[in-house]
Design a protein around this nucleic acid. Sequence first.
DNA 1: TTGATATCATTTGCATACGAATGAATTTGA
DNA 2: TCAAATTCATTCGTATGCAAATGATATCAA
Lengths: 159, 159
Amino acid sequence: MGWAAVSAGEEVRLKLVEAEEPEDNDYHLQEQVGFILRKAHQRHVAIFAAHIADLTPPQFAALAKLHDVGETSQNQLGTLIAMDAATVKGVIDRLKARGLVELSKHEVDKRRLLVNLTVEGREAVERLIPLARGITEETLAPLSAKEAATFMRLLAKLA
Amino acid sequence: MGWAAVSAGEEVRLKLVEAEEPEDNDYHLQEQVGFILRKAHQRHVAIFAAHIADLTPPQFAALAKLHDVGETSQNQLGTLIAMDAATVKGVIDRLKARGLVELSKHEVDKRRLLVNLTVEGREAVERLIPLARGITEETLAPLSAKEAATFMRLLAKLA
DNA sequence: TTGATATCATTTGCATACGAATGAATTTGA
DNA sequence: TCAAATTCATTCGTATGCAAATGATATCAA
């Protein structure tokens, strides 16, 4: 308890208050959703790296989404994979440097920079997708199938 | 469906296969736990920033943990808040620059760098903890109380 | 039509995040 | 005891991640 040192009369008052407001006086960082979310994310990234060493999760997300939707503008891709413009630029730059994507200018709208998979990029995604399924599985491994389904449903509500 | 273009006989085979293996041929990024985890974390950080503008979640985590356990070594603090040595150093450096923590050398073990809250740091944490509770609440707001409890239980298992 | 807005992309600056290498200090174990 | 292993901290390099400012282009509306 957090009030062990108070007088007997004070204890009574605090107990009554706690009956209405079940909150503990202490703040427990490890019980806060943000803190655990950060740790769960860290764990996932570590699992990802153990299976796919030469690509980061954001890089793979970009490739997988391009594989899914085909050529799109850099900005639109960012929207699809939840990355802001500055971040997606860096990711695409690095994928381009490795020959996995290629860039071209939109014919009509000269503001847009189109991004597409190269043949190498397509081969890479298709080779990696089975591994990615394994990463999802391993990340969820601490949960039973039923728990995992519940977790995914609730997590999706939060995100 | 993913096999609309196959022959009627092929459809039957695929249906039988799918009965055993419910996996779709497509890979859906937005259904992968890592992708949603990243988005949920992003949302939390945004909520945090809206309530506590002058501190990041890792910085607050460091202060809150120091408030909880008192003086510790930089490395030990990192363990407690799930940050590696290189990351925690940056966080502590910035908190020190703002006068919220102070550093000293361990008398016995000369390798250790002790970190402690300053008076200002202590005041800041105590002022911010109520806001942090609100951040946790708002992050979980899309869930009912029961759902939130379930989610926290499962999330803790994953992290 | 044209002036105000909006969109797309880039750049800069700051803050995590982590692997790897390094050096200093401590602990372990043969 | 003393060499090997471990621990603590620092530094470097790379990669997100986002706010804010900027410039180019496109769209909207009076």
